[in-house]
Amino acid sequence: MRLYWKVVLINGVVLCLALLALVLGPMSVSRSTVASEVLVLAGGLAAILLTNALLLRSSLAPVDRVVRAMAYVDLTGPDGRLAAPPSGPGRSLVDGFNAMLDRLEEEQGTSNAKALAAQEAERHRIAQELHDEVGQHLTVVLLGLKQLEGQVPAAQAAEVAVLRESVRDGLDDVRRVARRLRPGVLEDLGLTSALAALTNDLGRHHPAEVRRVIAPGLPGLASDTELVVYRVAQEALTNAARHSRAKQVTLSLVRIGEGLVLEVADDGIGFDASTSGAGLRGMHERSRLVRGDLRITSRPGQGTTVRLAVPLAVGPS
């Protein structure tokens, strides 16, 4: 609204001045216009337009900047914010725009957090049911078949043995799926054990030497922060295994000041700073949920280091 009035005012003032100049000035326009008069009129018009343009320019410049920023803004950090002019309607426009970005980012953050939390809860429920229902029933069948095998004639016993192996495979599958869905160790035994399990898994399936440096006696974290640390470590280790061709991968978790620092470093092929992907984005997103600070440093041929620092005392947002 104020911008609108400012434009009206500028136009009004310029036109009034032109009118005054016309009334009070020495020039006149004859019924059949002569060339010299046209020249003066053209000059006057040009002067009006120029004054108007100059005055409007400074007022409307912020609008252009906001429009440009809207096209390119990236809601992932404070870099997208515009510098506000010192005063005037442009300032309130830019301030309003920046506030809107803040709000959007905030809302996106909460809805991401909600989505992630809902996803984790759902995984948790499914894994639990797999373990507690399907797994138990299969165990009953497995043990029952073993029992049966000793009681039937040899011909049938062989058949029962085949069934028993098949049930065992089913049980293994259930367990594997449940384990992928939910880091049961994290909940039951804590972060240290869960990270140790992750590095063991990697060591088992990958030729790289996996080293683990976990400081003893680390203070506990809020449970959602632990989950974030775990998921970031999981993604970083998976990436190292899948892409890095490293000879050595080191995971460390230490306390530095008022924070806990997770570091996953490999000596592999590294990657370009412009690389992006769902995994890398997911790490950033999760880290932001718990006010963590995530840095990924990598250069082609130089290996990769993923470093996540999370605050100790404060909980989630």
Partner: peptide, 11 residues
Amino acid sequence: SMHDNEQYFFE
């Protein structure tokens, strides 16, 4: 146990 995870063994 149902858990195929060495950490449960160590615990």
